[in-house]
Structures are given as C-alpha cells and as structure tokens.
Design a protein around this nucleic acid. Structure first.
Lengths: 105, 105
DNA sequence: TCAAGGTATCTTGCTTTACAAGGTACCCCG
DNA sequence: CGGGGTACCTTGTAAAGCAAGATACCTTGA
C-alpha cells in the first residue's frame, strides 16, 4: 500500500477510534490493520506526538496477558481537533475527486 | 490546508489532468490551485520525478506570452500508473471512512 | 528449567515529498 | 527602463511512515 497516502489521515483515524473508547497502542495497531497496513513504528511515535500536543492523555493499566498497557483517552482539545481533521478530510476528498472528474472548483 | 494530506494524491491529480490533455507545469499549478493550495516548488520537482520514472514525456513549445513552455504528455506506462493510483485512492477512501464509522474490514 | 511465542512498549535511522524561498529569463506596456 | 505577468528551476527544511531492533512481561510445553 502507498504509505504516502496515509500521511495526515492516520492522526484522524486514531483520534476517531480513541474518541469511541479508550485504547492502548498495540490495540490501535491491530484495529487499524484490519483496514490498512500500519506498523508499531508508525503508531507509537504518532501517539507520542498526539500526547505532546495535548489531544490525548494516557494512563497505565496492568494486564494478565503481558506487560502493562498504556491506554489513551481523548481530551477536549482532541475532540475539537477530531472535528477539524474530519472536515478537512472530507473537503480534501471532494477536491481530489473534482480534479479527477475534470470539474472546476 | 494540511499539506500532509496531499502526499501521494498530487501524483494522481497530475496524471489525471495530463491524461485529459497535454499541459505545461505553470498551467498545472494554476489548474490544481482551483481545487487545492499547491505551489511551483511542489509541482516542478514532481514533474521531474514523473518524467524520470517514464510516466510522462515532455516537449517544448514557444509562447508569445512569455518564455517557452514545457508541455507534458502521458505515456502508456503513465496511463496504467494512473489506473493503479486511481484504484488505490478509492480503496484508501473506503478504508479510512470505514475506520471513521467504526466498521470492521 | 528454560526456550518459544504472544503481548506490549519504545527508539534510531532512512526515505519520501510538500513547500518556502530564491534565482533566472522571457514578454509587453507605460 | 521598470514593473508585472508568464514560465522555468533549485536548495534547504520539515513532517511523518516504516523497517529494524531493543526491552520486558506472561504462559506453555519440552
């Protein structure tokens, strides 16, 4: 899969999933992998960026199935960021599809 | 506009436009700018990459309105590349939209 | 006991590509 | 001759996806 296409949209995908329910990184990798190829080397740095920018918070939960999990929770900032990115995404689709159809505007 | 979103799709847009009719770089910048923000610093290097990869050819045409124009023409390789990228794009939209809706698959 | 495999985290280095900024040069008009 | 529109190109920077590798927890089975 064209990894360039994912640029910018993975942030949207992660925020959308975390907005539904708190998730840990490994879970996100598996969840997103059901729809598109993605690896830990992509997701973990992304979660760090999102946390640094205040769009998500995190907390640790012990697990019986392995090492502790770092769960992520969306913040108010994250919720409005999700709103913004979502709008941007659908606008972008329209723009590209118009170009592909040969329309103007 | 989120410049990360454009990654990978600008190549598709350019090929789609050039597939309709031969274009020169400056014209492509203006044409695409009707739909999304894009600059010469993006398009000219892209055209060079496309030519290097054999998806487009170019030829010079004198102009009364300024310096000579470098027109681009799609090749057979470019046409099938356009087909491939187009499919990839629509598949990608579906994947992202499924994730946003919370569907599986 | 200890190796293997699943779970879970993180980092380093590479690569691609959008873009700002700057440069060159043509043409016409005032 | 100077300004503005047209047209080309390059350099350097930044963002972000990903391969690869490191660490460590837990369970299962030989």
């Amino acid at each position: 899969m064209n990894s360039q296409l994912k640029r910018g949209t993975l942030e949207l995908c992660v925020l959308s999933i975390v907005n539904e329910h708190d998730c840990y990184g490994y879970e996100l990798v598996n969840r997103i992998s059901e729809c598109m190829q993605v690896t830990e080397g992509t997701i973990y740095p992304l979660m760090k960026r999102l946390k640094d920018s205040g769009t998500i918070d995190s907390y640790i939960v012990e697990s019986q199935e392995g090492p502790p999990r770092k769960y992520y929770k969306i913040t108010d900032i994250g919720a409005s960021e999700l709103e913004r990115l979502s709008g941007e995404w659908f606008e972008f689709i329209d723009s590209v599809n118009k170009l592909l159809k040969g329309d103007k505007g």
